[in-house]
Amino acid sequence: MAGKRTVLTAGLRRLSVLLNDMREQAGLSKEDVSGKTGINITTLYRIETAQARPQRRTLTAMLDLYGVTDQQRTDALELLSDALKPGMSRPYEASLTDVYAAYINFESEALSARHYQTSHIPGLLQTEQYAIAVIDTSMPKLEAAALERRARARLDRAAVLTKTDPLELWVVLDEAAIRRMVGGPEVMNGQLMRLLEEIKKKNVILQILPFEAGAHPGMAGAFTLLDFPNPADPELVYVEGIAGDELIEGHTEIRRFGVIFDQLRAMALSPRDSVALINDAAAHMR
């Protein structure tokens, strides 16, 4: 029987980084740890890359070997407790890829998101009818129950925009997304009206990148930059693609996507002018 699926969360990522740092500070290789504790070296690798949650006894054995302070031990055990809590994606994980499920978890804990989208309205701003039409078209062989679960996951994500400390969302949206007819005129008009309501929120900024802007650095595809309130959680980039989605870490890559986003928002219409363009698109949908 296959092992229990582990979907990445911020708590699990933080714990993996801490354990890697502790091992290195103790001057031990993974082989040393495996030889002294009996923990399989593959298991150690998976723990330190956040692909697996350590059992409490495994974590205790590692902490004992590393000779950590009482405070470090407490911190590690608290992170394990956090990592064991179900993420935002838990109810829908059977219908989601590991990367997308992890992204939902990270998004729910993020401080801000800078999102560029090329072809459709971003998931956080979609209506149910629009979400179903997008998913049904892009995944035509998906069973009805799975389609419904994916659509529900997409809609439930929007709670991050209205929670006590809401996500700060900045979207640059290609004009094609508001011009393309998805689900028919009624569905598309309803989606554009929803978009106009969502961008009234103080924590949501939207700019349309018009066709007249010509070639631009976002033509390779959609992406989202997430940053977090906890300094221990480094920024992430989520990249969408036909071949599969990807979560990217690393200062160089984060900086590259940050520069691209800055260029896109400089080329896009102002939020006020973007509202006018959305209203124009809506008028043509009626």
Rank of each mutant, 00 (worst) to 15 (best):
residue 164 T to M: 11
residue 170 W to K: 10
residue 175 E to G: 13
residue 144 A to E: 14
residue 136 D to H: 12
residue 116 Y to F: 15
residue 124 L to K: 07
residue 173 L to A: 08
residue 156 D to A: 11
residue 153 A to M: 02
residue 121 I to E: 03
residue 149 R to C: 12
residue 158 A to Y: 09
residue 145 A to C: 09
residue 142 L to H: 01
residue 176 A to G: 08
residue 140 P to I: 05
residue 144 A to T: 13
residue 177 A to G: 05
residue 124 L to V: 09
residue 175 E to R: 12
residue 155 L to N: 00
residue 171 V to D: 05
residue 158 A to N: 10
residue 115 H to G: 07
residue 164 T to Q: 15
residue 176 A to T: 11
residue 124 L to D: 07
residue 116 Y to T: 10
residue 134 V to Y: 01
residue 137 T to Q: 01
residue 166 P to D: 14
residue 141 K to T: 13
residue 170 W to G: 06
residue 124 L to P: 06
residue 150 R to N: 00
residue 130 Y to Q: 14
residue 166 P to L: 14
residue 167 L to T: 06
residue 167 L to A: 10
residue 131 A to P: 00
residue 132 I to S: 10
residue 154 R to M: 03
residue 148 E to H: 03
residue 119 S to A: 03
residue 175 E to T: 12
residue 133 A to W: 12
residue 130 Y to G: 10
residue 163 K to H: 12
residue 141 K to L: 11
residue 140 P to V: 04
residue 129 Q to A: 15
residue 119 S to F: 02
residue 116 Y to V: 08
residue 149 R to K: 15
residue 167 L to H: 10
residue 130 Y to V: 11
residue 141 K to F: 11
residue 164 T to I: 11
residue 141 K to V: 07
residue 126 Q to F: 05
residue 116 Y to D: 09
residue 117 Q to K: 00
residue 154 R to T: 02
residue 163 K to N: 13
residue 163 K to P: 10
residue 134 V to G: 00
residue 162 T to N: 04
residue 162 T to V: 07
residue 117 Q to L: 01
residue 174 D to Q: 06
residue 144 A to P: 08
residue 170 W to M: 08
residue 176 A to E: 11
